[in-house]
């Protein structure tokens, strides 16, 4: 039963499990591309992404500039590569924060005695009612032009949503017979959380977090588009869309690059999430149920 290895502990097992699924492979490839772009941009870009050169205004692609240049003659390819860095930072930061906040909220909504837990549940209900972008806008207005503002705002907003979904899952798992059996076997709360709750909510959590990463990418672009993202010299993809948008009818092709980058990144994260879910869920693994049936 090689299928069993996928659920094995450790990162190696998870990675192998993800790569066994088709969506996982595709998602990993797309996400890997973004990571690669971000890493490459740290040491090399064709041009300085902020370098203005009037002579190259609207330079065509596949010439001196691989993807062409914008009105000010800035190299689009360099901007795209450097933008991957911001996108990745925001996506990873937001998702990590959302995971921590979401899990903390969800656990404190199911584990403590009823009065406390109920308080948390009400708190989450109230927080969910706040529109995510509104929180982000307020934070961005108060602390303008910093990447961490975007990350904190999105992480808070999305973390609350992750918490709500995860709480439902935790409640489902807490009510199972295997948790009852674990308690009868002498397991305390900590062990039940680590051994039974977290692994069993992991499939849903992975999907949640991959969606979160996708939303974060889009939201960062939207904030930048509104001029509330990371400050101007940093060429985020949303910023590029914002800058190029007036020329949509004149030069549709230049808008294609940042737009495509955003779409592919979101798609990559979501596919990766699907792969993680499949790898984490033993029932979705191609394990032949009949393998050892029939014996005693």
């Amino acid at each position: 039963m090689s299928a069993g290895a996928g659920a094995g502990r450790g990162a190696g097992g998870i990675v192998r499990g993800v790569l066994r699924t088709r969506s996982g492979r595709l998602g990993a490839a797309l996400s890997g591309l973004i990571v690669l772009a971000a890493l490459v941009s740290l040491v090399w870009t064709p041009y300085d992404p902020t370098q203005v050169d009037p002579a190259d205004s609207w330079a065509p692609p596949f010439g001196r500039h691989p993807l062409g240049a914008d009105r000010l003659g800035r190299d689009l390819c360099s901007q795209l590569l450097a933008g991957a860095r911001i996108t990745l930072a925001v996506a990873v930061g937001t998702t990590a924060l959302a995971a921590v906040i979401g899990l903390a909220l969800a656990l404190s909504a199911v584990l403590p005695p009823p009065p406390v837990a109920r308080g948390v549940v009400h708190l989450v209900d109230v927080l969910v009612a706040f529109p995510l972008l509104l929180i982000a806008l307020v934070l961005a207005a108060v602390f303008p032009g910093r990447t961490w503002t975007t990350v904190v705002a999105l992480g808070l907003g999305l973390g609350v949503q992750v918490g709500r979904v995860t709480r439902g899952e935790l409640r489902r798992v807490l009510a199972t017979d295997y948790v009852l059996a674990a308690r009868a076997a002498g397991a305390g709360t900590g062990r039940i959380v680590r051994r039974h709750l977290l692994p069993n909510v992991a499939p849903t959590l992975w999907v949640q977090l991959s969606l979160t990463a996708g939303v974060a990418v889009v939201a960062e672009a939207a904030l930048s588009y509104l001029g509330l993202g990371p400050p101007p010299p940093a060429p985020s993809w949303g910023r590029s869309l914002h800058d190029l948008q007036p020329y949509l009818t004149l030069r549709p092709l230049v808008l294609l690059w940042p737009g495509l980058a955003i779409v592919l990144t979101v798609l990559g994260f979501n596919l990766l999430g699907d792969g993680l879910r499949e790898a984490a869920d033993p029932h979705l693994r191609p394990a032949p149920h009949t393998a050892v049936d029939g014996a005693p």
């Binding site: 659920a7 295997y178 009868a184 051994r195 069993n200 029932h283």
Partner: peptide, 29 residues
């Protein structure tokens, strides 16, 4: 709520539940 309070009992008394599908954590070997 503290598991160690009843450790003395659990060492002596163990249970088999009704549903053998539901009572085994699918994520554990």
């Amino acid at each position: 709520h503290r598991s160690r309070d009843l450790r003395w009992l659990r060492r002596d008394v163990q249970v088999v539940l009704q549903d053998p599908v539901a009572s085994l954590d699918p994520r554990l070997t």
